[in-house]
């Protein structure tokens, strides 16, 4: 297995675009192929901002430091370029796109990865989509539904996992994908991620969560605790258990300005 990191974040500072205040205040992170890193932290710690800055959300702006995907400068790229380079972010709040079917969306997304003038083979696409849905135990009719339109919270998250499965990213960023899910939906998401990793052991995962419980189902290689825009502790999965027992209060006190 290739051992150079997929994602390298160095001294990354970032905030809301057009505002002076940094939310991230110097984040360092390196994720190797096949690794699962969890970032845990209280509300407002900046963990979700990190996900959005990596994906290129236009509402956020990096003010210092760097983020590289396989040696390429992510911060210089548009969101679509990052996606084509291998970044995938599972949204905390997936957006409804009325009138556009999931199948059509994914077909367009795969087409966008081809060279100009190259046409996606529709038969191959259909086969891929069906195969991915089968892998995730999804009904074939799901792909014909308009993207997230009228979906339940659980369905929206399943849709994120399906897209991840179709696009097969080098780096999957899960932005609080577990929030607001009941335990069954959580298991579906975890099962999806684990299944995809079996298929593609090189896929790196950055799992951003407030809660420990998803880590019972997706076992991380590393856990980072983020407080006040910085990673204040990193270690093995046991950190998550300690956090669960103690809460974030201790970290907050220790790292208060």
């Amino acid at each position: 297995m290739n051992d150079s990191p997929v994602l390298v974040v160095t001294g990354l500072a970032a905030g809301v675009a057009d505002e002076d205040l940094d939310i991230l205040k110097g984040v360092d992170l390196a994720i190797r192929p096949g690794e699962i890193h969890a970032i845990m932290g209280p509300n407002g710690s900046g963990k979700s901002t990190l996900a959005k800055v990596i994906a290129g959300h236009p509402g956020y702006e990096a003010t210092d430091g760097s983020a590289e995907l396989n040696g390429e400068d992510l911060l210089e790229m548009e969101p679509d370029e990052r996606a084509r380079a291998g970044v995938f972010m599972a949204f905390q709040y997936p957006v409804e796109i009325p009138g556009v079917s999931i199948a059509n969306f994914m077909r367009t997304a795969l087409q966008s990865r081809l060279e100009d003038g190259e046409e996606l083979d529709l038969f191959d696409f259909q086969e891929l989509l069906m195969e991915r849905m089968e892998l995730l135990d999804m009904d074939a009719s799901f792909a014909q539904r308009p993207v997230n339109d009228g979906f339940s919270g659980g369905e929206k998250k399943r849709n994120e996992i399906l897209q991840m499965a179709v696009l097969n990213p080098a780096l999957a960023v899960m932005d609080e994908t577990d929030s607001g899910l009941d335990i069954d939906a959580l298991k579906v998401v975890a099962h999806g991620v684990n299944t995809l990793r079996k298929e593609n052991p090189e896929m790196a995962v950055l799992l951003i969560t407030h809660y420990q419980r998803i880590l019972n189902h997706i076992v991380p290689d590393r856990v980072h605790v983020m407080v006040g825009g910085r990673i204040v502790e990193s270690g093995g999965p046991q950190i998550a258990l300690e956090l669960e027992a103690q809460g974030y209060e201790e970290y907050r006190k220790a790292h208060a300005a």
């Binding site: 236009p58 957006v95 556009v100 997304a109």
Partner: peptide, 30 residues
């Protein structure tokens, strides 16, 4: 055009124009 919707589509690899097209087609397609 909803900026969040455009970002969502672009975050899957669609260029800005492609994303806009898809949103418009979906909107009128109803």
């Amino acid at each position: 055009l909803d900026a969040e919707a455009l970002f969502y589509l672009m975050s899957r690899g669609l260029g800005r124009e492609q994303a806009e097209r898809l949103v418009v087609l979906g909107f009128l397609g109803e």
